[in-house]
């Protein structure tokens, strides 16, 4: 909390942060205010992400209710083991992110960098598994939309409206994968900054926000996995 004297100084100096933490921006009074603002902003951003994905879930619900048989047949084509493995990978990465925040709060930059790197690694693993899933499907002619033409061991998928299932599958997992890639860029950037000792127990806002974002990516997958792979 800033005292009156500090506040006046701040105003007089036109907010160059005189007498304050170097990370305090001029229009905030305290680091607390700045941190909780950033966090509320992040939560609101996650709300927008939620609504973005909700469109896909609506499409899924509608077509699932119209064509349950086609969806039942189509979802069998997805290998639940791959989905399960990826679920574990993402859950583990969520744990490492939560740990990295735990470590920086205790001032342990080294451990934070380790667990951020682990998160990055797990994200790579997730995408590799996804890559194998996609290429397997593509090689059998399972494309989203018009090009959908299942062959070989997947020929049984040639039923009406299976194409809707796979369109939804590709769009949902595709958008999700884009989010994973963005998350990887975020973590690379966080690691870079951590290596330069930008973070401290007093100020680690980017790590906190990156963590929130990554947990959200995990949350989406928690719902995608049973809906797409198991039902």
């Amino acid at each position: 909390m800033a005292t009156q004297t500090q506040e006046t100084q701040d105003v007089q100096a036109h907010g160059d942060g005189h007498g304050h933490h170097e990370r305090l921006q001029h229009h905030f009074i305290s680091l607390d205010q700045q941190f909780s603002s950033a966090k509320l902003g992040m939560w609101l951003f996650l709300v927008t992400e939620l609504l973005l994905f909700s469109g896909m879930f609506v499409a899924y619900a509608v077509y699932m209710q119209w064509y349950p048989e086609a969806f039942a047949v189509a979802s069998e084509a997805l290998d639940w083991k791959m989905g399960f493995a990826n679920t574990i990978v993402l859950l583990a990465s969520s744990l490492t992110v939560a740990l990295s925040i735990h470590f920086i709060q205790k001032g342990n930059t080294k451990a934070m960098i380790t667990s951020l790197s682990a998160t990055l690694g797990l994200a790579v693993v997730f995408l590799i598994v996804k890559y194998f899933e996609y290429t397997d499907k593509f090689s059998h002619g399972i494309y989203p939309g018009e090009a959908f033409n299942p062959t070989g061991s997947y020929a049984y998928l040639d039923v009406p409206n299976a194409v809707q299932y796979f369109s939804i599958y590709y769009v949902m997992t595709g958008i999700h994968a884009v989010h994973v890639i963005v998350g990887m860029l975020v973590f690379a950037w966080l690691i870079y900054r951590a290596l330069r000792h930008h973070f401290s127990p007093e100020w680690y806002t980017p790590v906190e926000l990156g963590g929130l974002y990554w947990h959200f990516v995990d949350l989406v997958w928690i719902f995608l996995f049973p809906l797409l792979y198991l039902l």
Partner: peptide
């Protein structure tokens, strides 16, 4: 606003890939 985002994205994909939604 995010919903117009996903709508436009799906329309875009519908137009280039004919995803059939």
């Amino acid at each position: 606003t995010p919903v117009i985002g996903i709508t436009m994205l799906l329309l875009f994909l519908e137009r280039i890939l004919q995803i059939g939604i």
